[in-house]
């Protein structure tokens, strides 16, 4: 079990239901497998990034959680209710990947429709609408017709509908696809503020930097399979370690070779690519027990991009793609 799953568990600490708990999701279209045994857990207040190349199955997962895609196998619950049960969506906000809002309404009317759909009491609606518009930077434009909005403004309106009424879970599918760099930064801030108020967020994205900056946990998908998942810090830990000894002699070199490949040597420092990421303590004790003065042993963090390219690129090569 990954640390993300451990952190999530089946129920949250206060006994309330998990925002998202999905196990063994399967989906195939004719004979093309889209999801193959996918597990996904999102705990309260967690921001989980769903990463993967185009066509990896990210949107299919999201749609299955919202009851728009019927699964061939596996079980999924949203806020404690089976995915597909309309009641499960009572406290969920969603920005679809392909978003469009009725061009003949103005921004506030779109939000008004959604406020009614989630059953927000009439007395709370004006405040909730203003709150949502302000959060996404549309405060002055709520009275304009959606037909006159730019694509970026429509996406902001979609974000406003997603955060309307302070849902317990917000699902964002490529939320910055139509936004400029400033808009993207604002969305990152918005996601952070959601987390600060305890909202769980599932962020679908292929923008690694975006995920790296806001997510606590990541799930990396490739062709319908989870190839890595866990806390961002754990996933990004690589198999590379930098070892500095008092004296890097042949005997020490032989020990290092026993744990992996020595990629580079600079004086008494070696860069070692371990065969097993978990072998760091064993390597340290081997060096110490053989009497090599161990000055430093540093596991190197990699960027999410390196991890992603390694995982997704490697499997692509394996398929001869």
């Amino acid at each position: 079990m990954t640390s993300a799953e451990e952190a999530a568990g089946d129920v949250r600490g206060d006994g309330g239901p998990l925002p998202i708990s999905a196990t063994g999701l399967r989906k195939a279209y004719r004979n093309r497998t889209v999801l193959d045994d996918v597990d996904l857990h999102v705990g309260p207040g967690q921001v989980v990034g769903l990463l993967g190349p185009n066509g990896a199955g990210k949107t299919t997962i999201v749609k299955s959680l919202l009851g728009m895609v019927h699964l061939d196998g596996g079980t999924a619950t949203v806020l404690g209710r089976p995915a597909g049960d309309p009641a499960a969506r009572r406290a969920v906000g969603y920005l679809p990947e392909q978003f469009q809002y009725p061009a003949w309404l103005d921004g506030r009317q779109v939000l008004e429709v959604h406020a009614r759909l989630i059953g927000l009491p009439a007395a709370l609606r004006p405040g909730a609408l203003a709150d949502a518009l302000r959060l996404v930077g549309l405060a002055g434009r709520g009275g304009d017709r959606v037909g006159g909005y730019s694509k970026g403004m429509q996406q902001r309106l979609g974000l406003a509908t997603a955060v309307l009424g302070r849902p317990a879970l917000v699902i964002l599918d490529e939320p910055t696809s139509a936004l400029d760099p400033i808009g993207r930064r604002e969305v990152r801030d918005l996601i952070r503020s959601l987390r600060d108020r305890g909202t769980a967020v599932l962020l679908n994205s292929h923008l690694l930097g975006e995920v790296e900056q806001v997510c606590d946990h990541v799930v990396i998908l490739d062709r319908g399979r989870v190839v890595s998942s866990g806390a961002l810090a754990d996933v990004a830990v690589g198999a590379e370690v930098r070892v500095t000894l008092e004296r890097l002699d042949n005997a020490a070199h032989a020990i290092l070779e026993g744990f992996g490949r020595v990629a580079a040597v600079d004086g008494d420092t070696a860069l070692v690519v371990l065969d097993d990421v978990a072998a760091v303590p064993a390597l340290a004790s081997a060096l110490v027990s053989q009497g090599h003065g161990l000055q430093a042993l540093v596991p190197l963090q990699r960027s999410l991009e390196d991890v992603f390219v390694d995982l997704v690129g490697a499997s692509a090569e394996g398929e001869g793609r």
Binding site: P86, A88, P96, Q98, Q100, V113, H114, L117, I118, G119
Partner: peptide
């Protein structure tokens, strides 16, 4: 096709 339906059906509406 337009995506208008997805936003609405993501609400508690059968």
């Amino acid at each position: 096709e337009s995506g208008r339906l997805h936003a609405v059906l993501a609400r508690p509406l059968s």
